[in-house]
Design a protein around this nucleic acid. Sequence first.
DNA 1: ATGGTCGCAGAGCGA
Length: 264
Amino acid sequence: MTQKIQIASWNINSIRARIELVEKFLIEYQPDILCLQETKVVDDLFPSAPFRMLGYNHQALHGQPMHHGVAILSKLPLRDIRRHDWQQNGEARHVGASLANGMRVENVYVPAGGDIPDAEENPKFGQKLNFINQMIAWSQDVETPTILTGDFNIAPLEHDVWSHKQLANVVSHTQIEIDLLNKLQGTGNWVDLARHFTPAEEKLYTWWSYRARDYAASNRGRRLDHMWVTPNLLEKAASHQVHVTCRGWAKPSDHVPIVTTFSL
DNA sequence: ATGGTCGCAGAGCGA
């Protein structure tokens, strides 16, 4: 008998501003586990009750005032919850937890990196590169079946952005970021599930700027959100979906949810 | 055309 587990990841851009949107998503798609990024709330003020009402009784929260913040909401018990602060700067960007079957879920919000792709001119860009380097060191030791998901803030492939040429020097698609992300991927032999199921030649986005007059008409998106697995989980991954329609919902996040179905 | 829009807080910054 096989067990089906669906795991979702969504940069929600404030959980308090969008709790109804999340409820709509959970009712419609019923994932077992939801990884959130940019919750923008301290743990004491996290809206836990609406999730419990929907059966997500197991909650690994890792928030801070104002910015960032990650959380794992789960119908399945979570254990060995770890809240990482990779740069010892108080930023809440990574929370991980194990399931009863031994799988680990690692939920990450990589720094956006500011506007100028130069570490000396723009410390935020340096922080982003440093963060990935910390993850590379961490990734060396990952052996258990692990899902690494979240907002990586990097769109590595040509068709992960609306224009490879026009974004070549735009933070999220610069070669230095792509090289570093590829190094991280190689370190753990991580498999990029979205591209495992969708050919590299096909455009695939998870984020569209709020600034476009009509996001759908201009369709200038980027694939910033990812779900990677260790090779020992690959054969269990049955499908991967990007729920583009959520970008068109009222009061949307600028990111859409991604969901992987595992057959265990 | 170098703008545009969000959320947090309660001005301006980060995204």
